[in-house]
Simulated scan of single mutants.
Amino acid sequence: MLDIADLVRTTVTIPVAFRAAKEHLRGSPLSLDALVRRGAAAAFRTERVIPTLIKRIKALFQMALAVTMMVIVTRDVAPRLRGFLASVMLEIAPSVTTSPRLSAGVRDRVSEVMEAWFDALGSGSIVMTWRDLQALGGHGIRVMGLPAQRLAEIDGTLVV
C-alpha cells in the first residue's frame, strides 16, 4: 500500500537520502538523521513539495468524482446487447446491469455501442442512468426505444 508521500519518493525523498548518506560518509559532524531532516526541509521548500502534493490530492479527488455508478435496464433486446453489457458490467438481475465505478469516457463508449446496436437492431428498449451533477436532480438519463423520459422538478420533488 502507498501513502501520499510516495508521490514524491523518486523526485525528492530518495535524492535527499542519497545526498545525506554521501555527506555522512565524508565525515559530516551531523548525524545521518539530522542530515536527512535538513536536506528534506530544504528540498520541500525548493521543490515546493507541499503545494505539489495538495494539487495531486485534489486531482485524485476530482478523478474519484469523475467515476460514477451506472445502471442499465434493458427490455426485449437482442442477446448480443446483453452479452456486450455483461462484458463491461455486472448483471445483478435479469436485464439489469450495473457498474459501481465507471469513468465518463467508458460510460460514453458503452452508450455509443448500445445506441449503434440498438439503431441497427431496432427492437426493445434501453434505459441508462448515472450520477450527473450538472443534470436536474443529479441524474443523467439516456433512453432508447421508449417514449422519451425527462425529469422535471415540481415543488422540490423529481418526477418523470
Rank of each mutant, 00 (worst) to 15 (best):
T10W: 03
T11C: 08
T11E: 15
T13C: 04
P15Y: 08
P15K: 03
A17W: 06
R19N: 15
K22F: 14
H24M: 03
H24F: 15
G27M: 07
S31G: 15
D33A: 13
A34W: 00
V36G: 01
R37A: 15
A41I: 11
A43Y: 03
F44T: 14
P51Y: 05
P51E: 09
P51R: 00
T52V: 04
K55W: 04
K58Y: 11
F61N: 09
F61W: 09
L65H: 13
A66S: 15
V71H: 01
V71K: 01
T74F: 01
T74W: 02
R75I: 09
V77S: 02
V77N: 03
P79I: 09
L81A: 11
L85A: 08
L85R: 03
L85E: 06
L85Y: 04
L85D: 06
A86P: 03
M89G: 07
E91T: 07
A93W: 06
P94L: 07
P94R: 12
S95A: 15
V96M: 08
T97W: 14
T98L: 11
T98E: 11
S103G: 14
A104N: 04
V106T: 14
D108N: 09
S111P: 00
E112P: 00
V113L: 09
M114Q: 01
M114P: 01
E115T: 14
F118S: 05
F118H: 08
D119I: 10
A120C: 00
A120G: 04
G122L: 01
G122R: 01
S123N: 06
S125K: 00
V127Q: 00
M128R: 02
T129C: 07
D132V: 05
D132W: 03
L133H: 06
Q134V: 07
L136G: 02
G138E: 07
G140P: 06
R142Q: 14
V143C: 10
L146K: 07
P147C: 02
P147H: 09
P147V: 12
Q149T: 15
R150L: 14
A152Q: 14
I154Y: 05
I154T: 14
I154G: 06
T157L: 13
